[in-house]
Design a protein around this nucleic acid. Structure first.
Length: 872
RNA sequence: GCGGACGUGGUGGAACUGGUAGACACACAGGACUUAAAAUCCUGAGGCGGCAACGCCGUGAGGGUUCGACUCCCUCCGUCCGCACCA
């Protein structure tokens, strides 16, 4: 019998050392093996790794180890998304330099990841905050600038008037700055942009080629790009009502067919016409100012109560010179989309309807359902937004939506206003250019110099990298680069006159938009080593959180194209990630004290069950409030530290736990009992192997000429398990693979007490297969067991076993027999049984006869190998 | 507000392209081993009724399509994610 328990923490360190000494996971290009690039989204070095983070890396690692065993040349790298605001916040709060804070975090987190036993090639590790990385990013920027993919324009920021600084959206809380509490305002600032809109169509169309991406992500991206076909329509303004110099207002609409249902026009608060009108109207100016206080977040703008202000300006309907409509300024119209102006058709748009009801504007139905009655059709609380038949629309009446669109477009295209067509067709996108300027220290400096005479001058390649100054100060808000006494003062590279550096740094999304390329040659002198990039790219399996479904992935797709255009990647490589998997979070209950402070689970004692469950602070003994289950996060402190976990249970238990039960794309709730189950299994495998090593056939014992029924049954179970576990690992259905391993382990264990012809050999075979199957998931235990079974090779170097096809197919098959769709019995027949044979056998079954209770059989549906349904 | 997803026993979940709902695990109950505990092993179990055989109900709620629906369609409810300066 098994003597000792498996001491995971000790043995895991041993095997990690062995892998390291033998460079087991070092990657090299070339060779005959097919390549496979497995990548998990790299982490931000926020401090420590918790069990929540570990899930993503475990999944990638299982796949990487599996693919390695399947004979692939695997690239599985790791690095650090190391620029970002938390480092700067730490600098302000704790007087520690962002660089020091970041690198210290990296050291801690690297050690933590290594203690998980990941099959990572650590020689490729880099941090994006290191000049060795960002110098190449600056080069990429300059090449994009040359190709006009980077440019400057004015755009809005959240401005904190007290701290005199730009705020991120997350730093704006209920319209106020998070530190100062001051009312935030929108401010215009000249900023750098990447021309992602140049690729709107391509980014949209190519989604069709990404068949290994989740459908929902593709859909979200398509909606984000938001292609629409519509009409730009110019409305004449009633001159005596409009500010000087304003003769017309151009709007964008996707529903010109509803023009006869128009009852108002609305413009954005920062539309030029609004600004001009506000100059002479203090009340309007106040309204516009109020709108600006909502900050720049679209979510905030659209959740706010819909409000409008009648400017007094009137516009002439393009299809009826005698019809004038009011022009409102409205807080939900965005200057960035279309022309920043719309016409409102309350009967055909819910938001317009609510606006019209609020301000007493007419609601005229112009589209009704195909089978509707024009005389009776009216709009109540709900707008009719679908296609249908035109009514109350003069020459459009009776046409369908599409025809009406065409008719209006045709008319307005040929009509003239001020000698130009009233309208023109326009394909519009919701996607905006990517604003990359950040007024912060801890980011990649934008490598340009502003000269009074020469304008914007790129930093010459030879002067790269533009390094961040070490001696920045963080004691006051605002941009440390801008207020640095010397850093920004340089000579103009062109004319040598005194000039100043750009003090904006890049959005950290830029860093993560090409890191997967850099991993293919992390030490190259140029940003990209084309040979390595061409060999490894695209990433074969990318794994990360669903929260990145839009921005990070879209930016990376853009960057791949932009790097193609600027000569850094071959142009035929368009998509960086061939397959994408979005994994769920690990969640945990939250606990807080009476005065609202979060308490980590490690300091909580729980009592009772169900409704009566209570939580107490271990230190003070005071009762705590048990809050909702949320994703593990530092801010809510509901995290379980990876070191604590591994010290107690070992890495394999952590890995098994995060893979078990929950489907990987869904959230998993952390519970201690779930962890206990995982630990139990680790010990159980060890015991089985110990028993087998002592009692089973020896290593390499000759295969018996024949097997008795017990051995045959075990071998079938083993090979079937191997087959489906392989498929489920490949399909990333880890929870199902885990369940199948459990099932097989149960079978194996139940066989150990039995005897039969060839059973000892079969037990040895099954045990070895079990070890190989759990290997990618429990790599340390796998090595330990492999050694215990007498091998002096590494399990990590073993090829994946092949299932014997003959053992996967059974001779007989059990199918369900239904009567009128209800299961009444089951039937075991030969695999090769014909429809007629199955039907005859089914009709004789006693429960079937009983369920029919004498009724005649009307029909029998037989789906061979599946089901019989008797309809009576 | 807009866009996207998800909802199955006490719990996490399984169910291939519409074909035996509840695999597997956790928790629970009973038993074995033990001086005892832990660990381990065996057995049981969706709900209701019944000694049982068995019957009825059952995949968030309501409706529909089908011989047959967790799966497809419509309406509703609830939860979660994203919304462009968090990463």
């Amino acid at each position: 019998m098994a003597s000792e328990r498996y001491n995971a923490p000790v043995r895991e360190k041993h095997w990690q050392q062995v892998w390291k000494e033998r460079s087991t996971f070092r990657t090299k290009e070339g060779g005959k093996r097919p390549k496979c690039y497995v990548l998990e989204m790299f982490p931000y070095p926020s401090g420590r790794i918790h069990v929540g983070h570990s899930r993503n890396y475990t999944m990638g690692d299982v796949l990487a180890r599996y693919k390695r065993a399947k004979g692939f040349n695997v690239l599985h790298p790791m690095g650090w998304d190391a620029f970002g605001m938390p480092a700067e916040n730490a600098a302000m709060e704790r007087k520690v330099h962002p660089g020091k804070w970041t690198y210290e975090n990296i050291d801690v987190m690297r050690a933590q990841l290594q203690s998980m036993g990941l099959s990572i090639d650590w020689e490729r590790e880099f941090a994006t905050c290191h000049p060795d990385y960002y110098r190449h990013q600056q080069k990429l920027f300059l090449d994009m600038l040359k190709k006009s993919l980077a440019y400057r324009k004015s755009s809005k920021v959240n401005w904190d008037p007290v701290d005199m600084t730009v705020l991120a959206n997350e730093q704006v809380i209920d319209g106020r700055g998070w530190r100062s509490g001051a009312l935030v305002e929108q401010r215009d600032l000249t900023q750098w942009f990447f021309k992602i809109t140049k690729y709107s169509d391509d980014l949209l169309d190519a989604l069709g080629t990404l068949d290994k991406w989740p459908e929902k992500v593709r859909l979200m991206q398509a909606n984000w790009i938001g292609r629409s076909e519509g009409l730009m329509v110019r409305w004449a303004l009633a001159l005596k009502t409009a500010p000087k110099g304003f003769k017309e207002l151009e709007i964008y609409t996707t529903r010109p067919d509803t023009l006869f249902g128009a009852s108002f026009l609305a413009i954005a608060p920062d539309h030029p016409l609004a600004t001009a009108a506000a100059a002479k109207n203090a009340e309007l100016a106040a309204f516009c100012a109020e709108c600006r206080r909502l900050g720049t977040s679209v979510a905030a703008l659209e959740t706010a109560e819909k409000m409008g202000f009648d400017t007094g300006i009137r516009a002439v309907h393009p299809l009826d010179p005698d019809w004038e409509l009011p022009v409102y300024v409205a807080n939900f119209i965005l200057m960035d989309y279309g022309t920043g102006a719309i016409f409102g058709c309350p009967s055909g748009d819910q938001r317009d309807l609510e606006f019209a009801r609020k301000y007493g504007l007419p609601v005229v139905p112009v589209v009704m359902p195909k089978d509707g009655d024009a005389a009776k059709f009216a709009i109540g609380d709900t707008a009719y937004v679908d296609d249908g038949v035109m009514i109350n629309s003069r020459f459009l009446d009776g046409l369908d939506t599409k025809a009406a669109f065409e008719e209006v477009a045709k008319r307005l295209e040929s009509e003239k206003l001020d000698r130009k067509p009233v309208a023109q067709r326009k394909v519009n996108y919701r996607l905006r250019d990517w604003g990359i300027s950040r007024q912060r220290y801890w980011g990649c400096p934008i490598p340009v110099i502003h000269c009074e005479d020469c304008g914007v001058v790129p930093v010459p390649d030879a002067d790269l990298p533009v390094m961040l100054p070490e001696d920045a100060t963080f004691d006051v808000p605002g941009n440390p680069l801008d207020r640095h006494p010397t850093w920004k003062h340089v000579a103009c590279p062109t004319c040598a006159k005194p000039a100043r550096r750009e003090t904006d740094t890049m959005d950290t999304f830029v860093d993560s938009s090409w890191y997967f390329v850099r991993f293919t040659a992390p030490h190259a002198d140029t940003p990209v080593d084309q040979k390595a990039a061409n060999y490894w790219l695209p990433v074969d399996q990318y794994i990360g959180g669903i929260e990145h479904a839009i921005l990070h992935l879209l930016y990376s797709r853009f960057f791949t194209r932009a790097m193609g255009a600027s000569g850094h990647l071959k142009k035929t490589l368009k998509e960086p990630f061939a397959a994408l998997f979005t994994q769920g979070m690990v969640t945990h209950e939250t606990y807080r004290t009476r005065n609202g402070q979060w308490v980590p689970p490690s300091e909580v004692r729980l009592e009772g069950e169900g409704e009566a469950r209570k939580a107490f602070d271990i230190g003070s003994g005071q009762p705590l409030e048990i809050g909702s289950i949320e994703k593990m996060s530092k801010s809510k402190k509901n995290i379980v530290d990876l070191d604590d976990f591994i010290d107690q249970y070992g890495a394999d238990t952590a890995r098994w736990f995060v893979l078990s039960d929950s489907p990987p794309e869904r959230d998993v709730i952390y519970t201690d009992v779930g962890v206990q189950g995982a630990r139990r299994f680790v010990q159980r495998v060890w015991r089985l192997v110990e028993d087998c090593a002592e009692a089973g056939s020896g290593k390499g014992a000759p295969r018996p000429p024949s097997f008795g029924p017990e051995a045959d049954q075990l071998r079938r179970a083993a090979h079937k398990a191997l087959n489906s576990v392989s498929q489920n690992i490949e399909g990333l259905r880890f929870n199902v693979a885990v369940a199948q391993i459990y099932e097989f382990t149960n079978t194996l264990q139940s066989m150990t007490a039995r005897t039969g012809e060839g059973l000892q050999w079969a037990l040895r075979e099954a045990t070895e297969l079990l070890v190989q199957m759990v290997g990618p998931m429990l790599p340390h235990l796998g090595e330990e067991c492999w050694a215990r079974l007498g091998y002096n090779t590494l399990l990590a170097d073993q090829p994946w076993p092949e299932a014997e096809p003959a053992l996967l197919v059974d001779d007989t098959i059990t199918i369900a027999v239904q009567v009128n769709g209800k299961r009444r019995d089951e039937l075991t027949v030969a695999r090769t049984a014909t429809r007629e044979e199955i039907e005859a056998a089914a009709l004789e079954l006693e429960p079937v006869v009983r369920a029919l209770s004498g009724r005649p059989v009307k029909k029998v549906i037989v789906v061979p190998q599946r089901i019989v349904n008797v309809v009576g």
